[in-house]
């Protein structure tokens, strides 16, 4: 639901960077999104199109890299993957409190011209 406000942040960062590098256009915007970050790539795509219109980033590509959720089980002393918020270790069934990857919301790079 807050994809629109996140995308406003992305647009502002991208336009600022493009301006300070003297770019004429933004060709591509790359994001890294954790699978448990609570945002939908589809909604991000929609917001991107709407918010980039009438800027030097109009028509730019949005490339989203999704990172899978990775937890760490303390009793087993090893990481495991689980795509839900419960973090149940598949080996011992303990509930992990340590989500090592999966909440990322990052503007990773821009392609400028």
């Amino acid at each position: 639901m807050h994809e629109l406000s996140l995308m406003e942040t992305i647009r502002d960062l991208a336009l600022n960077q493009a301006q300070s590098h003297g770019a004429a256009r933004i060709e591509a915007v790359r994001l890294r999104i954790g699978s448990l970050a609570g945002v939908e790539p589809e909604a991000l795509n929609f917001a991107f199109e709407v918010l980039m219109a009438n800027t030097i980033g109009a028509g730019a590509r949005l490339e989203i890299e999704t990172l899978p959720a990775e937890w760490f089980c303390a009793p087993c002393a090893r990481p495991f993957r689980a795509e839900d918020y419960l973090g149940l270790c598949p080996s011992c069934g303990a509930i992990s409190r340590e989500l090592r990857q999966g909440r990322e919301l990052q503007l990773t790079s821009l392609e400028l011209s």
Partner: peptide, 16 residues
């Protein structure tokens, strides 16, 4: 041909 620049940022969107 226009030259393309790849700008690595790694900015956390919730950092602010």
């Amino acid at each position: 041909k226009h030259s393309h620049t790849h700008l690595q940022l790694g900015l956390d969107l919730l950092a602010r």
